[in-house]
Design a binder for these strands. Structure first.
Length: 153
DNA sequence: GCCAACGTTGGC
DNA sequence: GCCAACGTTGGC
């Protein structure tokens, strides 16, 4: 079982939106970066991920989700009305992938980016790497546990 | 709104 | 294959 981190802008899709979703489950569509896509494709059912709110104040890890469906074609890629439309994509050549995730927990206390930076055990966290923009990336089991512990306060 | 960092595109 | 120009991300 692997651990991951998923970024979302709460203005676009927040963890509260996920909590309101049918079966508390959503498809994680719209990823248009090859490295991030390849991480989506590496996910297995049962993997867990941290849910991170970006481009907001404060940016923070706000909860956890579980992967409930492995990677499959992302149909938003060939939807001309979609913000992330990719003219190269089609049902025959999907190009982009998505997974389904289900809400596991909303943290009793969000853990802000600022706080993560000060934690020694998280020194290697991809999220904290200077200039890192990857919206999907792996985290170690130890990093995952550390952040869950911080969320309990 | 600014800007650093990064990815992508396309001319050569 | 190089690299300049451009677009995007995302913290601040």
């Amino acid at each position: 079982m692997r651990h991951w981190l998923l970024k979302s802008e709460p203005d676009c899709f927040s963890i509260a939106d996920l909590a309101r979703a049918k079966k508390k489950t959503t498809c994680w569509d719209g990823v248009r970066n090859y490295q991030a896509r390849n991480f989506l494709r590496a996910m297995a059912v049962g993997d867990r991920a941290l849910f991170y709110h970006s481009s907001c104040d404060p940016p923070a890890v706000v909860g956890t989700v579980e992967v409930v469906r492995a990677a499959y074609p992302d149909p938003s890629a060939w939807d001309p009305d979609d913000d992330h439309h990719d003219p190269r994509a089609s049902p025959e050549n999907p190009v982009w992938s998505m997974v389904d995730v289900r809400l596991e927990a909303i943290f009793p206390r969000a853990v802000p980016l600022d706080e993560l930076r000060g934690v020694r055990a998280l020194a290697g966290l991809e999220l904290l790497r200077r200039g890192s923009r990857l919206s999907v990336h792996p985290v170690s089991a130890e990093e995952f546990r550390t952040i869950e512990r911080l969320a309990r306060g």
